[in-house]
């Protein structure tokens, strides 16, 4: 079908994901070998890594480096005694609240900035400033305002994540093709309809690219928040195990915190497929 002159006119949407897949197939005939390589190499890589780690770890002081085997045992122990499950849920809760509010506020503010040049000029200085500031330094101030505990950690998480969502949403909205906006004015679309049917759908791939980056920042907020404010949850476990030189348990807690991130990413991807199936980007093989 792509061989006729009258071929589909609209190019696929650009890949907006921050990471590019380095090994795209060169030609279809190499597909078989490519597919085989695609799964065998990463798995082989991990297996070899774990074996080397195990061998090196067995010859080192276990305080310096725990072996994969001992980490697995520690992980099992912590799951069974319930410590890890509770910590995991607490982190998911802080992430869900902080990142969720950041997503809603970020998309709202971003849309406003994208549709109103006045709002853009008023708000943009703050966005640029906070995006460039290491916001984790605000932790003491947040504690003064919100007290020691879960709310302060949610605020930190929110503060770390929201700017990226704002920037991506407003850029995506501002990039709406002028011809679509002209079309909307020809058909007398109200501003609410322009936002809902034109600007927001156009911004969706930008928004989700922003959400993925913001999720990483939010997770940093969650863990550092727990480490420096309440000493509970995953951050608390990490500090405890680190201070008491329980390296295997420490690594188990760290691995659990990356699982929080993976779960978050999967939820975002499921949402994207559900809300905006047309926004399929080239990186769909990644999950």
């Amino acid at each position: 079908m792509a061989l006729t002159n009258d071929a589909p006119g609209r190019a696929p949407r650009p890949d907006l994901s921050p990471v590019q897949d380095p090994e795209a197939p060169a030609e279809p005939s190499a597909l078989r070998t490519f597919l085989r390589r695609r799964w065998t190499l990463p798995i082989l890589s991990v297996v070899v890594f774990l074996i080397v780690w195990q061998i090196v770890g067995m010859n080192l002081n276990p305080i310096l480096l725990a072996t994969p085997g001992s980490v697995a045992v520690a992980l099992g122990e912590l799951v069974v005694n319930g410590q890890l499950g509770f910590a995991f849920l607490r982190a998911m809760g802080a992430l869900g609240a902080g990142f969720g509010i950041a997503a809603v506020v970020g998309i709202g503010v971003g849309l406003l900035m994208g549709r109103s040049i006045v709002a853009y000029r008023v708000i943009n200085p703050y966005v640029s400033f906070f995006q460039a500031t290491p916001l984790i330094a605000l932790t003491p101030l947040v504690v003064i305002w919100a007290g020691i505990g879960f709310p302060a950690e949610v605020v930190i998480t929110f503060l770390l994540a929201v700017w990226t969502v704002i920037i991506n949403t407003s850029e995506g909205t501002r990039n709406t093709p002028p011809i679509l906006l002209d079309m909307a004015s020809v058909y007398h679309a109200k501003e609410s309809s322009v936002v809902r049917n034109v600007a927001l759908p156009h911004a969706v791939p930008y928004i989700f690219a922003g959400l993925r980056i913001a999720l990483g920042k939010a997770l940093i907020g969650v863990i550092i928040g727990e480490m420096s404010i309440s000493l509970q949850g995953l951050g608390g476990l990490i500090v405890d195990f680190g201070d008491s030189f329980q390296t295997a348990k420490l690594l188990a807690a760290i691995i659990t915190s990356s699982i929080v991130g993976v779960v978050g990413t999967i939820i975002i991807e499921i949402l994207r497929r559900y809300i905006a199936p047309w926004s399929q980007t080239v990186d769909r093989g990644k999950l």
Binding site: G9, R10, R13, P177, I179, L180, D182, M183, V186, Y187, H188, A189, K190, S193, N197, V198, P201, V204, A276, W278, S279
Partner: peptide
């Protein structure tokens, strides 16, 4: 009628026409 089709990529042909009739 614009130089480009100016269709909303996230709407079917039917729904693109429906958008024009919304008002």
């Amino acid at each position: 009628v614009f130089q480009e089709p100016a269709l909303l990529p996230w709407r079917s042909v039917h729904d693109n026409l429906a958008f024009a009739l919304e008002y």
